[in-house]
Lab assay of single mutants.
Amino acid sequence: MNGTEGPNFYVPFSNATGVVRSPFEYPQYYLAEPWQFSMLAAYMFLLIVLGFPINFLTLYVTVQHKKLRTPLNYILLNLAVADLFMVLGGFTSTLYTSLHGYFVFGPTGCNLEGFFATLGGEIALWSLVVLAIERYVVVCKPMSNFRFGENHAIMGVAFTWVMALACAAPPLAGWSRYIPEGLQCSCGIDYYTLKPEVNNESFVIYMFVVHFTIPMIIIFFCYGQLVFTVKEAAAQQQESATTQKAEKEVTRMVIIMVIAFLICWVPYASVAFYIFTHQGSNFGPIFMTIPAFFAKSAAIYNPVIYIMMNKQFRNCMLTTICCGKNPLGDDEASATVSKTETSQVAPA
């Protein structure tokens, strides 16, 4: 074996020389240089400094401006809540542990950190699934009389939490487990061992099928149909120019969110899948650390995309920050905001 397995950890380093120690008790400087741990800490600090204000501001601005409380925005706000879970429940602890060179909070802290990181990532993924379905129903109109309303949005939010908990909670109940990963300063689901005592193999298969592959299939199907429908409608001029423009802008925003999600999470999922299907193979701690920490940047891109591509939200945010006056001169009362007929989201 090219790694060292303990009762509640797996260190990707052979203990042939006897240097491996528990990542809950000793610094892991035999895995990497101390400066590399410091770089990880600096990166986590950057994500906290950027991630908390922008996600909190997204929630605060929506509470302050009633016009932003539209059904589709409920799902987008759900993304902000998920990102805050990741920032507060995961990033802060990882910053602290990186500074110490090992996971100082012990197995219980590892469970909590892994739970919040998994929960936030899964809420984001299933929120994108709900957004894809909403775009498909609104634009492709498989149900001609359907209107995406507040009740549908609330059910969509509830669905994302149920599915996220169905992925994040089982390791706390004994189906699989959370262990330190990479440089042993952050925790995630155990992809490294089969661990029959906790039926780890069945859980990892379940997670990859139900909580990654199926959502991706739904998302790609919905947007494949959507692109075809938008092109067909444009060719036949079935909708008014204003409605077409608004629907295209909202669709473009959501598609960019999906692409950003894939850029952040597919490398992590791919490496995790490789590790799981190549048990005992030779790989270093950096092999998993880089995609794991890169995936954490997902906490800042959704609100950035939303702010950049949604003029109505951008104006409301500037008005809130600048104490009631928009410095760009777009007065809220007089600004013309095009809303789609069904989803009521302003185009950029």
Rank of each mutant, 00 (worst) to 15 (best):
T4K: 07
P12R: 00
N15S: 04
T17M: 04
G18D: 06
V20G: 00
R21C: 14
P23H: 07
P23A: 00
P23L: 02
Q28H: 00
M39R: 01
L40R: 00
M44T: 08
F45L: 09
L46R: 00
L47R: 02
G51R: 05
G51V: 09
G51A: 12
F52Y: 09
P53R: 02
N55K: 07
F56Y: 09
L57R: 02
T58R: 08
T58M: 09
Y60H: 14
T62N: 15
R69H: 13
N73S: 12
N78I: 01
L79P: 08
V87D: 02
V87L: 14
L88P: 07
G89D: 04
G90D: 10
G90V: 11
T92I: 14
T94S: 15
T94I: 09
T97I: 09
G101E: 08
G101V: 07
V104F: 13
V104I: 15
G106W: 06
G106R: 06
G109R: 08
C110F: 01
C110Y: 03
C110R: 06
C110S: 00
G114V: 02
G114D: 06
A117G: 14
E122G: 07
L125R: 11
W126L: 09
S127F: 04
L131P: 07
R135Y: 02
R135G: 08
R135P: 05
R135L: 07
R135W: 06
V137M: 11
C140S: 13
R147C: 13
E150K: 10
W161R: 06
M163T: 11
A164V: 10
A164E: 04
C167Y: 06
C167R: 07
C167W: 03
A169P: 01
P170R: 04
P170H: 05
P171E: 01
P171S: 03
P171Q: 07
P171L: 03
G174S: 10
S176F: 03
Y178D: 01
Y178N: 02
Y178C: 05
I179F: 01
P180A: 03
P180T: 06
P180S: 03
E181K: 05
G182S: 03
G182V: 02
Q184P: 00
C185R: 05
S186P: 05
S186W: 08
C187G: 01
C187Y: 01
G188E: 03
G188R: 04
D190N: 04
D190G: 05
D190Y: 04
Y191C: 10
T193M: 08
M207K: 14
M207R: 08
V209M: 12
V210F: 11
H211P: 01
H211R: 04
I214N: 09
P215L: 05
P215T: 05
M216R: 00
M216K: 09
M216L: 10
F220C: 13
F220L: 13
C222R: 06
R252H: 11
R252P: 10
M253I: 14
P267R: 00
P267L: 03
S270R: 04
G284S: 15
T289P: 01
A292E: 08
A295V: 13
K296M: 11
K296E: 08
K296N: 12
S297R: 02
A298D: 11
A299T: 10
A299S: 12
I305V: 11
K311E: 10
N315K: 15
T320N: 12
L328P: 11
A333V: 12
T340M: 12
E341K: 12
T342M: 15
S343C: 14
Q344P: 10
Q344R: 11
V345M: 13
V345L: 14
V345G: 14
A346P: 15
P347R: 15
P347S: 14
P347Q: 12
P347C: 13
P347L: 13
P347A: 15
P347T: 15
